[in-house]
Amino acid sequence: MKLNREEVLHIAKLARVGVTDDDVEHLREQLSDILENFEILKKVDTADVPPTAQSIPLQNVTKDDQAADSLLPGQILANAPRKEGEYFRVKAVLE
């Protein structure tokens, strides 16, 4: 599977990772190499095999609805790059 430039830019956009022109070419080569290596999976017959998402036989784990201490707004906001009062400050979503 060889990726082209447009595909790399499309993936970068989906992943919301900014890239330079040099990055695109480098990533195109490396990702293509890795994806070609993955072609080996086509050799495996998985016609009647169900997928495995996780390896333990637990399902629908629930817990009692009990009140407990939680973090205070000040503790949460201590790591915020930008804040105003008790809010995270972000760029306008709609201009």
């Binding site: 999976l41 095999v49 997928p51």
Partner: peptide, 12 residues
């Protein structure tokens, strides 16, 4: 992704 998850079943 789905193919890899099926191979995961075989390995397990």
């Amino acid at each position: 992704y789905l193919k890899a998850q099926k191979v995961r079943t075989l390995i397990r």
